[in-house]
């Protein structure tokens, strides 16, 4: 009799488990429920395509579309106008002999400049956020895991960083350093980690109390393994969200810097400096202003919307349902 029961008690079959749904599919379902996030994702896709094609088309010694080509015969041409083929050397002629988005005061093709700008924005957004995410995760993890003095020191550093008005601090540092796009990325990265460190620390503090971390300690796993293999993957969700939104704000910061004349040094184009150039010709050549402004707006919007969608899709509370 008792053996019988034993058998039934420990009987097992797969049908005990609920239907298997992979995490990716669940995530996708959540994302699709939020129309704003969905459109954000589509816009992001377009942005990546533009930025990558921008990199391909405008780089190299002899680019297909040269954003730096000055054509004094074709200044401030309106969009879709034909190039002045008779007066241009073959090298100066734009792709298809048409200025799709017009030209600026030096006769440079706005489309190719905007494409290069997309490339710059992508670079700035991802590298600076990469730096801040890396710093934020490491410092936040250390603070949250070790607590005590380590935590006090790191959190004091965060408090201090948060006291400085970040945009002005960036301006200050950029003004002291030699102008280069790399310096901009590093400075934006180094000034925007505190937010992420705070998130990671908060996650770590709650993870620290969870039993699976204690279990890992009881199994004699190393601290490094516990922190970076067990805890970080569980703390990554809010980081992803704030990183996505961080890319948006890095792009915005860069364009602000460029607008004020401290961004990407000429002759390289960025959306910010196209816009700054355009403001002088706001009535004569509004396209300069509108193209670059809209490009910034749409890209930043896409990142922000997608970030918010991620927040919902990764939210464990919503996932329960």
């Amino acid at each position: 009799m008792s053996e019988d029961i034993e058998k039934t008690v420990y009987r097992h079959d797969d049908s005990d488990l609920p239907p298997h749904i992979s995490n990716v599919k669940r995530f996708w379902l959540q994302l699709c429920q939020n129309p704003l996030a969905f459109w954000g994702l589509i816009l992001l896709g377009l942005f990546f395509l533009t930025a990558i094609s921008g990199t391909i088309l405008t780089h190299g010694d002899n680019p297909i579309m040269d954003p730096e080509q000055v054509r004094l015969v074709d200044t401030l041409k309106s969009p879709l106008s034909k190039a002045n083929i008779e007066l241009l050397t073959p090298k100066e002629r734009p792709l298809f002999d048409i200025y799709f988005l017009g030209t600026d005061k030096l006769g440079r093709d706005v489309l190719s400049r905007a494409l290069q700008g997309a490339h710059v924005s992508l670079l700035v957004g991802f590298i600076s956020v990469g730096i801040s995410v890396l710093l934020g995760i490491i410092l936040g993890a250390l603070a949250g895991y070790y607590g005590n003095y380590v935590d006090s020191i790191i959190m004091r550093a965060v408090d201090i960083m948060l006291c400085f008005p970040s945009f002005f601090l960036i301006l200050t540092i950029i003004a002291l350093l030699p102008a280069s796009i790399w310096n901009i990325m590093i400075v934006i990265g180094l000034t925007s980690w505190p937010g992420i460190a705070r998130f990671v620390r908060a996650e770590f503090l709650s993870l620290r109390k969870q039993d699976f971390v204690t279990a890992a300690e009881a199994l004699g796993l190393s601290k490094f393994r516990i922190m970076f293999v067990h805890m970080v993957p569980n703390a990554i969700a809010p980081v992803l969200v704030s990183a996505t939104i961080g890319v948006a704000s890095a792009i915005l910061t860069e364009s602000g810097l460029s607008f004020l004349g401290f961004g990407v040094p000429p002759p390289d184009a960025s959306w910010g400096n196209i816009l700054a150039d355009g403001k002088e010709f706001i009535f004569d050549a509004p396209w300069l202003f509108i193209v670059s402004g809209t490009a910034i707006l749409v890209t930043v919007l896409a990142f922000n919307l997608f970030g918010e969608g991620l927040r919902d899709a990764l939210n464990p509370k919503l996932r329960e349902l």
Binding site: D211, F212, T214, A215, A216, L219, G220, H230, P233
Partner: peptide
């Protein structure tokens, strides 16, 4: 640690969800 182990109360927080 190989010779002494622990099992926890909360079956939800005691397994790493990832």
């Amino acid at each position: 640690r190989q010779r002494m182990q622990i099992v926890f109360q909360d079956p939800y927080s005691s397994l790493n969800p990832r």
